[in-house]
Design a protein around this nucleic acid. Structure first.
Lengths: 195, 195
DNA sequence: TCCTTTTCTTGATTTAAATCAAGTGCTTCC
DNA sequence: GGAAGCACTTGATTTAAATCAAGAAAAGGA
């Protein structure tokens, strides 16, 4: 059984019927590094569930890329804004590691939500978490110093440092790779420690 | 006729019935400075439409307040995250100027959306704009320097500088009031110019 | 109205991060 | 296996913003 179904069942105790309905519409895909899951100006037609691998969400600017978010196995990937509204995305999403994905198309998701109240609740929870997460992130960017953001990230998501190239992490923190490198040595981060 | 109805009609050409339905559920309120529209940990039970006045959305931290957003007449005010999910808010919202508000309670909004497809579309557009706005804001905080953010704000929302105390604007930009003051003089902002 | 409080401005100094620059170590792919 | 390119580190310098501090202006209250 795919991870996504296992997780949904564990939390929501969904019925056989609901499981089948989900299984019927999901598409298993593999996405390699150097490809895109979603490009700016494209509509996010499918939301993905990552079985294995990782992705990053980023913005392109004339001078640089700004990495804004990371996605790992066992979580959803996509631009919620573009997916919900089916309008062009302002963000790019691409794999950092090779990914195994389960794709759910917009129309299928809407149909599932219509049909199964439990999945409607699930969708609402996902939306809620997304909204609250972005609220918190915005607050952190405003009230925490770069060094504090680094420390929080290290506490809360140490795996990011293990699996994501530093330049992306630096972009996520809003600092240069050099500064991130210095934080790492300052806080004794190296291969022999917990990382 | 209240501004909110005028605006909805102008854009959506809604019917008499729809207008009446909206009018029936809305509550006119006045909110003065030093009160709260929404406090942290409270559920955002009503969404407001500002007829006159302005508000700010902010976070409390042990050391300081971080102002995150502003709302002016002719726009909706509230924590979309808390309202949609009816869960406790992580933000505070309070008037900056005395406000005249039209309040719409959660259950009423849901009923209107159920009943009138045009209002369902309107609600989706509001959600979309909110999601995209926060995406853009997040990107701006990461990729633009404080000075660039100041210049963008000045171009796009000059009224903020006319009506909002600088310390709140400074918080919104992620800088100290002193630095904002210096930007203002640097860019020749004073009472005799367009401000 | 005047007095108090708050808000804003301006200057001097400090500080944190960016930038510039060089070098090291890893991949990867001919 | 060796060359080439990429990712990361480290150091020196510059730069932008914070902080500290004092004073001016504006707002609010008695």
């Amino acid at each position: 059984m795919k991870q996504v179904l296992f997780n949904i069942q564990r939390v929501f105790r969904i019925s056989e019927d609901e499981m089948k309905a989900i299984e019927n519409v999901m598409q298993v895909t593999f996405l390699k590094k150097n490809n895109f899951f979603l490009k700016e100006n494209e509509i996010c037609k499918s939301i993905g569930f990552i079985e294995h691998g990782s992705m990053r969400l980023f913005y392109e600017t004339p001078e640089k890329e700004v990495c804004n978010d990371f996605f790992f196995e066992n979580s959803l990937v996509g631009s919620i804004a573009s997916f919900i509204t089916q309008t062009p995305s302002i963000v790019n999403i691409a794999p950092v590691e090779n990914c195994e994905l389960l794709l759910f198309e917009y129309a299928d998701v809407m149909a599932l939500i219509q049909k199964f109240p439990a999945l409607k609740i699930l969708a609402n929870i996902i939306l809620q978490e997304q909204l609250i997460r972005t609220e918190k992130r915005e607050a952190s960017l405003l009230k925490d110093s770069p060094e504090e953001r680094f420390k929080h990230l290290l506490e809360e998501h140490p795996k990011i440092f293990k699996r994501i190239p530093l330049r992306y992490v630096a972009g996520y923190l809003g600092i240069t790779p050099e500064t991130l490198s210095r934080y790492r040595s300052k806080f004794l981060i190296n291969a022999s420690t917990s990382l």
